[in-house]
Design a protein around this nucleic acid. Structure first.
Lengths: 191, 191
DNA sequence: ATTTTGCGAGCGAATACTAACAAACAAATA
DNA sequence: TATTTGTTTGTTAGTATTCGCTCGCAAAAT
């Protein structure tokens, strides 16, 4: 899909956006990081837009494969939910820079094509969780007082916020531990 | 504190950041919105940084006064929590552009002084909620299984996410209604 | 009379991107 | 095997445009 050089450019772009924001994501800064000249970048991507687009493609592929996989590993919906959350934190631990890139819709706000892609990924994830909860409700295994829409907001909202806090604290705590704590509190709600 | 013209510049800046992002927040765009020339802007603020700084000052004053007020209107901690949440949604309904400005830490990431101020506001709000919950626990009115840290993440995380979704949907649903739903689900957890 | 608020013109630096050319490499040919 | 050919990947030098911001001056307000 992407050549080695292209993947390198994508990786450095993500790091650059993470550390210096969209404003720091310039072709000049990027070329320094990659170690080639500015026009050299354009040998591998036709525009800055194309790089952002590739970042989203690359991430989308990752998450679709990973999540689909983790959901097929169990039968119990609660176990699925837990492993879904675990997987998210695993991805963040493995590539913290992604937190900024996928939770900062503002980065893509000038490009409708890109913001649509971000929305698509979010909707995909929410639908996964929603169908799990609807299944539980059908089987009368979800307490009556649980509001599915509200739970989904709590689920993704708290995970996002924890990840952002982790990043803003310079990764000063163990997100795996705190994530486990959070996930078990979330699961408590629907037990 | 701020002259009429300064307040106008602050208001237009918030709107500009909301609609066009940090990248669209330029002195040229701002001067067009305000209706004066670019150098005219510099008669009222010494730099672009000073405008961002003023935005945070203005918002900080608002939220500190408003929240402190709403928390003194009741005795029951649960009622306080509800009115705290209500107040947040009221502020957003009244000034939706603030959602982008205060939930987009990336805007200020290049300026440590500014990102520190954002953090300060967040910590202030979290501490308010935390002290309410600690009080409840002391009085044995908080269920044992409730993890205070996790609940705070859920509380602010879900509110933030709902607000962002509201904005991203072009304000296509009634955030007051959905906010009420969310808040009652949140309160259910600690009852 | 003095201060405040505005303006047009223009500064140096940075932006995304292009043109023209050269080395490196691989496949095809002698 | 040695040489030619074409493609890929890189460079230096430059484009037009935009950025935040300043200068010097004039009108307006106090």
């Amino acid at each position: 899909m992407f050549s080695d050089r292209q993947q390198q450019i994508i990786d450095e772009s993500i790091k650059l956006i993470d550390t210096r924001g969209i404003q720091g994501f310039t072709i000049k800064n990027l070329s320094k990081k990659v170690g080639i000249s500015e026009p050299g970048i354009y040998r591998h991507f036709e525009s800055k837009f194309a790089i952002l687009s590739a970042i989203l493609d690359s991430f989308k592929r990752d998450i679709f494969e990973n999540q689909a996989l983790s959901l097929n590993n169990a039968n119990d919906p609660l176990v699925k939910l837990k492993s879904f959350g675990d997987k998210i934190f695993e991805i963040f631990v493995h590539n913290p820079a992604l937190i900024t890139v996928i939770f900062s819709e503002e980065i893509y706000m000038n490009e409708k094509q890109l913001s649509y892609r971000i929305k698509e990924i979010q909707t995909f994830n929410e639908n996964l969780i929603e169908s799990l909860l609807i299944g539980l409700r059908r089987d009368k295994k979800l307490p009556d007082h649980v509001n599915i829409g509200a739970f989904i907001l709590m689920f993704f909202g708290s995970i996002r916020l924890l990840a952002k806090k982790w990043k803003m604290s310079d990764y000063s705590f163990d997100i795996k531990t705190r994530g486990d704590e959070l996930l078990s509190s979330l699961l408590d709600i629907i037990k």
